[in-house]
């Protein structure tokens, strides 16, 4: 299991398009992905779940990944946050 905490840095927060990008990135891997914000834990491969995080700029998100390609998957997701979902 890999756990990483990331901060949302893009001004508009995780709105619809970044959510789609997160889900698409996560879906490329076999690992299970969870995104956790405060009490809310959602599946990183479910677009509705990711949007329900309603993560604004500055919010902190814990990314939890487990599975045989967890390292790559986690790194890819952290990268997506780091480049502000601009791939």
């Amino acid at each position: 299991m890999v756990e990483q905490i990331v901060t949302v840095t893009n001004p508009l927060g995780i709105h619809a398009r970044p959510s789609a990008l997160i889900v698409q990135t996560a879906s490329q891997y076999r690992s299970e992905v969870r995104l956790i914000r405060d009490e809310l834990e959602v599946n990183g491969k479910s677009i509705m779940g990711v949007m329900m995080l309603a993560a604004e700029m500055g919010a902190q998100i814990m990314i939890k990944v487990w599975g045989d390609d967890e390292q790559d998957c986690s790194a890819a997701l952290v990268r997506a946050f780091a480049v502000r979902f601009d791939n």
């Binding site: 001004p11 508009l12 927060g13 995780i14 619809a16 309603a54």
Partner: peptide
């Protein structure tokens, strides 16, 4: 889809302002 996306964006903006 657009209406939902707007709703989310509005919520994100509101949260940012209150922070």
């Amino acid at each position: 889809a657009e209406l939902f996306s707007q709703r989310l964006a509005e919520e994100l903006r509101r949260r940012k302002m209150s922070d």
